[in-house]
Write a protein that binds this DNA or RNA. Structure first.
Lengths: 248, 248
DNA sequence: CGCTTCAATTGGTTGGGCCATTGAACCAAA
DNA sequence: TTTGGTTCAATGGCCCAACCAATTGAAGCG
């Protein structure tokens, strides 16, 4: 990176602390015991004893994991695993200014637009026949649900997109988008009070799938962009509506 | 999301703990004192006293901030601010599976390709004259460094890209890409032992800038894609080279 | 069978203490 | 003046032993 030619190759040293070691040991333990998300892990007191460290140190380590969303602590009950955990993980904590408002959501949507398009293109390029069949299944489920009850399509919708991400061959798409959407979970439950929010995106799911099934990356990308564009439109309309309401 | 019609609209309440309150208070303090990144904030003991909580509680709160990359603690010295912090921030910690090997890097590059292209397009669409001038400056610095010493262009290169992300108007681009690249920091310092890694990407920086300066989103996107493509090529060649070396 | 009560369990918090590292002040030799 | 070593107070890292508060499940009771 910097000054590759100079003699400044030194740049130590990372001097890891005790709690870091605790985290590594804990990761090993979780792996060894094959703990699944939802399961409870040992008491802080037991961990402190078995790891030969103070409970305080255990708590600092667990606090870090809690901050990363890997673990959930419930007073009086225990500490529970919330996600897969392996010794080699990449953490990228993002901080978004401005809170969970419409503006922030708009920013995450711009990220999603980029990722959704790329994932669709990669999916069209690499999806196996089996994967495509799986996507088709999710799509049909979604359409069925959509035509039935009026507003409960979100879950099926998400599963459809997930299957596309999976078929892209890159797990990062699902993880990143999932994490972002998860943060706005409360929002999606009541999208600006609009009843048929996301309604307009519906037909583009099928057109996108068709381009994927035809192994047409460029076409899939275009349809994905159209899909997200409708959501962005809805969001803009909703924001404008809120603004009007605020002025009254 | 799920069961929008059901009566289970309740889902309070976040039941904030003491350390959460400490974090909010600290955020307020930082804002009030207008602390800038790099500056030192009060000692744990002083914070504990002023906030009327135990030092351990302060430590747990700071541990969380440290995990989020907002703060850096140096034993014997103090605790230092590492990034902007405001009371209303949305944290979304991403934890990505997969080790820091070449395969993982390839996956992150697919993400970067998507984001880089979108950021370039948005930048071309929204960048002000001033922002474009700033980008031009970074570009020229980069080219100057590049033509001077042989291998020290990475830092200037990164600053150039950063200026593009900033001008896109969406802080998430810089944060996500920065976090990803940071995780592979050790790799970029010795990219597969190849001396002129990333050499081929050089000319596309200028072409991309030209499309941005011309407010041509589509063109900027194309050039960004070409840029990343050269890096991916280098990476593939390096991986193949490693494979051969492994077989010998 | 359903309800209340209560005690054990568990994470949350406190206040105290000691240690290792840091950095500045100070001092001495080159 | 500069360089190198020493001292020393400040600071984060870690430990300890309690106590508090929420949860849980079993015992007890109507």
């Amino acid at each position: 990176m910097k000054q590759a030619g100079s003699s400044r190759d030194i740049v130590p040293v990372q001097a890891v602390g005790r709690d870091d070691a605790v985290l590594k040991a804990l990761a090993g333990f979780v792996r060894q015991e094959t703990l699944r998300p939802g399961q409870r892990l040992p008491t802080e007191r037991i961990l402190a004893e078995q790891l030969k460290v103070s409970r305080n140190t255990v708590r600092e380590a667990l606090t870090r994991w809690e901050g990363l969303g890997l673990v959930e602590r419930r007073q009086g009950s225990g500490t529970y695993l919330k996600a897969e955990v392996s010794p080699d993980m990449l953490h990228m904590p993002l901080t978004l200014q401005g809170g969970a408002d419409v503006a922030g959501l708009m920013q995450t949507l711009e990220i999603r637009r980029a990722l959704e398009a790329e994932a669709a293109a990669l999916c069209a390029e690499r999806a196996s026949k089996k994967a495509i069949a799986g996507i088709a299944e999710k799509l049909e489920t979604m359409e069925r649900v959509f035509h039935g009850t009026s507003g409960a399509s979100s879950e099926a919708d998400w599963e459809f997109h997930q299957s596309v991400y999976k078929a892209s061959g890159n797990a990062l798409f699902e993880q990143i988008i999932g994490a972002m959407l998860g943060n706005y979970h409360r929002f999606w439950e009541h999208p600006l009070g609009i009843r048929d929010f996301g309604h307009a995106s519906f037909p583009y799911h099928r057109t996108m799938f068709e381009r994927i099934a035809a192994h047409d990356p460029s076409g899939a990308r275009s349809e994905a962009l159209r899909l997200i564009a409708t959501v962005e439109d809805d969001l803009r309309r909703g924001a404008a509506r809120l603004k009007r309401a605020g002025k009254l």
